[in-house]
Design a binder for these strands. Structure first.
Lengths: 313, 313
DNA sequence: CACATCCATAACCGGAGGTTATCGAAACAG
DNA sequence: CTGTTTCGATAACCTCCGGTTATGGATGTG
């Protein structure tokens, strides 16, 4: 019998959530669609996979058997996909590098330039992505490596090379009351609504709402955004404020948004990430070496107070 | 990215055949459909998988990478499918046993009866299949075991328990000229057209056109059939003659078909087959034990001349 | 030069996979 | 006891995917 890996992912989601509705939400499809797919899978396999009840969906014997053996299938396909993409990149001499919207900056420039010098016959392709996407692109081998802000979900599955660390500041609408002050401490922001990343991004989202510095103080979420564009718009719109790396003040300067120095919050680190699952290709290895030569050895604390204020723009 | 295992099988077929048209034929789909699918796969993976030429399709670098890593994916899914089917069978206490059309007979009866006695709470489900299908059903775990005639394709992937061996005779239309003779030798049939199994059944097909006793003499194929019904119809219709196990004279007796003893051809063996890939379940193990207790120890050569003639019916 | 072979393209059709809207049954809060 | 919420199932609908047949264009081959 044939299956689509999509169907397997669907099943896995339902098995893990124990609940059709939640699983459907996680998969970004409607609940009826998922109902139909799961029933079809059951029909095709000739086995009841779930015990339906008001409480949700519980695995049956055959269901548990499938849940156990599904991992290897998806893993095998993941490896196959990465192998193809790596072979393709090698034969066309392209190194594809993803970057999380806000993680690219002067370092990226410098690294790619140095790599070009080392491998003149190769091309570097930079691919921007939304907050959540780079991990997917990394996992599927669509990009060989990615510039990421730490932490990010499923981080343990990747090798990390830390490149730079910079303080975080706060971004807000130009007409925000707090904008009148030159420097703030994080405690000032505890009750402000924040512009957040989607819940699916887990630790990444938490980091950028300052969860680790709130001491349990709940966060008000003013809006959820996927891309830098929406993010900037939401801030300018006054939907809420947001933490941002200091360099954002330069890279995302807008008249209706101001950036203010912030104390009482940990800095942000940019790292180059690449999958542990497969051996790096020679070209990627070169890129990593190049990157490690350009990495900061120590945090640039000295520049701290100068980078973030609006006067820098 | 998601794929259907069907697409992977398609790719595999093309890679092995090196030729779209042949691969399409082997997959029982039209050539344009296959063209479309392969192109789609290439598009989705963002890589050229084949080098097209007049001579056919040759694998590129990425194509070779995919070809290598596809096996594990299909294997993993095969294991998953078998695991589910086995769990389902266990929880509903059903032992599903396939049988190649002509391989069922008194032995089958006796074995299932004895098994029922050993496991009264279990049910045995017998599933008849066309010449080629039982292997597929076995491989996918749709049936836990199958009664087969040896040889059959991919036989090495299965454990075999030989149950009985019986001479082969010849079946032909009642009005066939050779039907007037009581006993024949295979050499008499060399120029007769034969009713054959599909080419895909490989060694099985060869065995039943007597390839091993022809000494290179080419075979005329009068018709190709999938099921016993078509087979009988084709014989009665005079499209050709066919080799048949002696017991066919009893199990497939019809007024318009006669069976004649045949010399100069090897006998046929019925065996119980089950996959090597997975550990037999306890119930299957019991079934195998039961079967081995009922297996013939020696060929029943003594009965040879009595079983085949039409007078037995 | 005619022909066979092999892949690509075009036009068409049914069904699979998704959507929104709605329902019925249980669990739960007041 | 009742109103509300939270499950999954069902219905009606639309789009596009995966197949079909028919045909074309390029390249070897007798």
């Amino acid at each position: 019998m044939d299956v689509d890996t999509r169907l397997l992912r669907y099943f896995q989601a339902v098995a893990e959530e124990g609940n059709l509705t939640k699983a459907a939400a996680r998969l970004y499809i409607s609940q009826p669609a998922l109902t139909k797919q799961i029933r079809r899978l059951e029909y095709q396999l000739g086995a009841g996979l779930f015990e339906r009840s008001k409480a949700g969906m519980a695995l049956t014997g055959p269901g548990a058997a499938l849940a156990e053996s599904i991992g290897p299938v998806l893993d095998a396909w993941g490896r196959a996909e990465r192998a193809v993409r790596a072979a393709e990149a090698a034969s066309s001499k392209v190194l594809r590098v993803g970057f999380l919207a806000s993680a690219a900056n002067e370092k990226t420039q410098a690294i790619t330039a140095a790599f070009r010098e080392r491998r003149p016959d190769w091309r570097v392709e930079l691919r921007q992505a939304s907050w959540g996407a780079p991990i997917a692109a990394l996992a599927s081998g669509e990009v060989a490596a990615a510039f990421m802000r730490l932490p990010f979900p499923d981080q343990d599955a990747f090798h990390l090379l830390e490149l730079l660390t910079e303080p975080r500041c706060v971004a807000m609408a130009a007409n925000h009351p707090l904008a009148r002050r030159d420097a703030l401490v994080f405690a000032d922001l505890l009750d402000e609504p924040f512009i957040a990343a989607p819940a699916a991004t887990g630790a990444f989202r938490d980091h950028w709402i300052g969860a680790e510095s709130r001491g349990g103080h709940p966060v008000k979420v003013g809006a959820v955004t996927e891309h830098p564009d929406d993010w900037l718009t939401a801030i300018a719109n006054g939907d809420g404020i947001a933490l941002a790396p200091a360099s954002a003040a330069r890279y995302y300067a807008r008249p209706d948004i101001v950036y203010r120095d912030l104390d009482g919050i940990a800095p942000s680190t940019v790292a180059l990430a690449w999958p542990k699952a497969t051996q790096p290709t020679p070209a990627l290895a070169d890129f990593i070496t190049t990157a490690s030569e350009m990495a900061d050895r120590r945090l640039p604390h000295a520049r701290r107070s100068a980078v973030c204020g609006s006067e820098v723009i």
